[in-house]
Amino acid sequence: MNAPRLAAVLWDMDGTLVDTEPYWMAAETPLIESFGGTWSHEQALGLVGLGLDDSARILQGAGVRMTTDAIVDHLTDEVMRQLADTGVPFRPGARELLAGLRAAGIKTGLVTMSMRRMAQTVVDLIDFDAFDVVVAGDDVTRPKPFPDPYLQACEALGVTPDETVAIEDSPNGLRSAIASGASVIGVPLMVSLTGVGAHALWETLDGRSADDVVAFHAAHRSRLRAAHSNQEVAR
């Protein structure tokens, strides 16, 4: 059986496509302090890759006396305000790789736990037609680390997970993508991804091309096919 060819690349947004994690941290700290609490950098790192509802509940535990929805709306508004002031802070190489994938005719999807209105703001600020589909945090019933967001993106694109590559920067994001059946590249930023299970760890996207992603997908799927064949022989 031939290995499936790469049909789509699915991107996480915060920390993977764009370096917005400092924006979220800059929104969290004053909110907590306004209720008399304190917030450390280590605590902020614990929210990286979490769904916003889960993050809001943690902030409530840190003393924020607001509803979950109100916290999510407040943080989203603050990050969107910062984006409006600074533009899209692409991670090194991300814009170039995304544009290269589009030029190669490979479908692309954005799979983020941020609210759709924020995801759409980022997409609208990109100066080319970047994505075929956007799946946001308020589009899914179960957030990352469940596989649902990636499975939903695959369904919307008309592809199967084994035809996709996912690019992620957080442990929860990796777990979601891996559970979906995609081939997964981890590109660490704020937190270590060692031992989470990414099929490849790239230090940066800078200098990476669509050909690199295609080659990674083919190699990973070939390894899986070989491992399956060996298991069949062992039986």
Rank of each mutant, 00 (worst) to 15 (best):
A198L: 09
G181Q: 05
P188D: 09
E168A: 12
S176K: 12
P161W: 00
E168S: 09
E168V: 07
M190V: 00
P188S: 06
V184Y: 08
A198R: 03
V159N: 09
A198K: 02
S183W: 01
R175L: 10
V196P: 09
G197I: 05
H199Y: 12
G197S: 13
E168F: 10
T160I: 00
T194S: 15
G195W: 10
E163I: 00
G186C: 11
A198C: 13
V196F: 14
V196R: 11
S183I: 02
D162V: 01
V165Q: 07
L193E: 05
S176W: 07
V191R: 13
L174M: 04
I178G: 06
V191Q: 13
G158Y: 07
H199C: 10
G173F: 09
W202G: 12
I167D: 06
R175H: 03
G195F: 14
A179T: 10
G158E: 05
I167Y: 07
N172G: 08
T204G: 01
P188H: 04
T164V: 05
V187M: 01
L205D: 07
E168L: 12
P171A: 01
V165R: 06
T204K: 01
T204Y: 03
H199N: 13
I185Y: 04
R175M: 08
A177D: 07
E203P: 05
L174C: 04
G195A: 15
N172M: 04
P171Q: 03
E168P: 08
V184C: 13
G181R: 04
P188I: 03
S170K: 04
